[in-house]
Design a protein around this nucleic acid. Sequence first.
DNA 1: CAGGCATACTCGTATAGACGAGTGGGCAAG
DNA 2: CTTGCCCACTCGTCTATACGAGTATGCCTG
Lengths: 262, 262
Amino acid sequence: MPSLPSGFLGDLDPTSDRAVFRQIADQLREAIDRGRFKEGEKLPSEAELVDHYGVSRMTVRNSFSVLQGEGLVHAEHGKGVFVRPRPPVRRLASDRFARRHREQGKAAFIVEANAAGSHPQVDSLEVKEEKASQDVSTRLGSVRRVLARRRRYLLDGRPVEFATSYLPLDIARGTPIAEPNPGPGGIYARLEELGHRLDHFEEEIRARMPSPAEVKTLRLASGVPVIHLIRTAFDTEGRAVEVCDTVMAADAYVLSYQLPAT
Amino acid sequence: MPSLPSGFLGDLDPTSDRAVFRQIADQLREAIDRGRFKEGEKLPSEAELVDHYGVSRMTVRNSFSVLQGEGLVHAEHGKGVFVRPRPPVRRLASDRFARRHREQGKAAFIVEANAAGSHPQVDSLEVKEEKASQDVSTRLGSVRRVLARRRRYLLDGRPVEFATSYLPLDIARGTPIAEPNPGPGGIYARLEELGHRLDHFEEEIRARMPSPAEVKTLRLASGVPVIHLIRTAFDTEGRAVEVCDTVMAADAYVLSYQLPAT
DNA sequence: CAGGCATACTCGTATAGACGAGTGGGCAAG
DNA sequence: CTTGCCCACTCGTCTATACGAGTATGCCTG
């Protein structure tokens, strides 16, 4: 059993009313914050910490689970517990749906990924007609059935986003929008060709912990929340022509908006 | 020992390679999703589940900790484990800094809270000069020292948001902005009076798990992420005149933006 | 030298038991 | 009836142990 690198971690305070596993978590967290353990680096193993602190293994594991819940570390079976690297983030600028981009025939995701020097992929595309959920129906203005376009986005092989677009059937049925590949500029370009000139978008943003299904789809580490974005597109006649429901891995995104000070 | 309400929970599958504590978590989660346990309702106690499933207490606790990490339930010492109620959310609309609101002399937070019929409070106000962090300095254009205004916002007694505004000293020093109460319309109104007519804002949004300090300040339940918003205000000369760093309890907010389709 | 296996080390899962501390209800004493 | 205490029930913390499974390394065998 190799012993701990000296000086990284202190002692426990038995008189403190702070639980032992919290004290251990505090010391590890501080060591990480101070850069004593760097990104991607391995923390001391459970056995080493058991020796160092003279506590039982479950207590050490309890500390780790605290740090995992904070998204600071992640465990790899058979290898160890590692400081979670802050992944490069993808910026979503508020002009990403500007018409000038569409007119160049590029999808927003691809353009941005290339600009960042990453390798983008789109995945698990599914296009089908289905019954609108209560929420989608309300947002689209009492629509019964919709065309749903589902897809997953990956960056350098890592899933970062899962999105579903819903469009009223009377708009989308029988058009290129109902095709797996809607053509250059994406569905927004097609909507405009169909006479629905886009006026503005509304975006609603929430953050929460992922469901087990989302953990699986986005291969999320524990302690990583998701950003839930619901965008509604309105045409110049004030009609809602699309609702896009997007779930993003929060550690992969920074959203950016410009607001006029009017 | 009262026995379990029958039929709510199934049996374990010993042949499954899914861990027992995950199976239990799955069953509880499904029961919650189906509404068998309603919001605020108490789940079976650890002891009851130990009996029902014939497993050890730590296994049951392990299941609970899974659900806690998902933000689905919360435990109360001495009482039980409860389904976490979805709290009413506060919407932050993108026109919340519109000049017309400032001209009515109202602070954005108060206006919105009143509109929602809630009781707003502002708390732990601190105004002082300090050294700018690297990040703030960059955003404000290489400023050394800044005026920092810190405050916490509460809604019906619950802390929901903690914010710090940073302003360049050459703008703010000796003005009402450096006073605890900057007067009607808030600091944006004062900035305009001082000749810094506001042109636009930039907002950056991230989501992540809270630090222990943030858990304390916002009294966050486990499994609740925070939304981290950094807003920079620009005047008509293109100068950054304020940076506002805001940490919000994610379960209390929906952010809402309008984007032109230009 | 190359391949495969043994082994040590890692975390994952589960059991059983102990004590502590917060909560709430019921009972007994005033 | 009210007050106060006790007790049962709840979750919180901690110990000790056991076995399983994934990973990496080095040695041994062919």
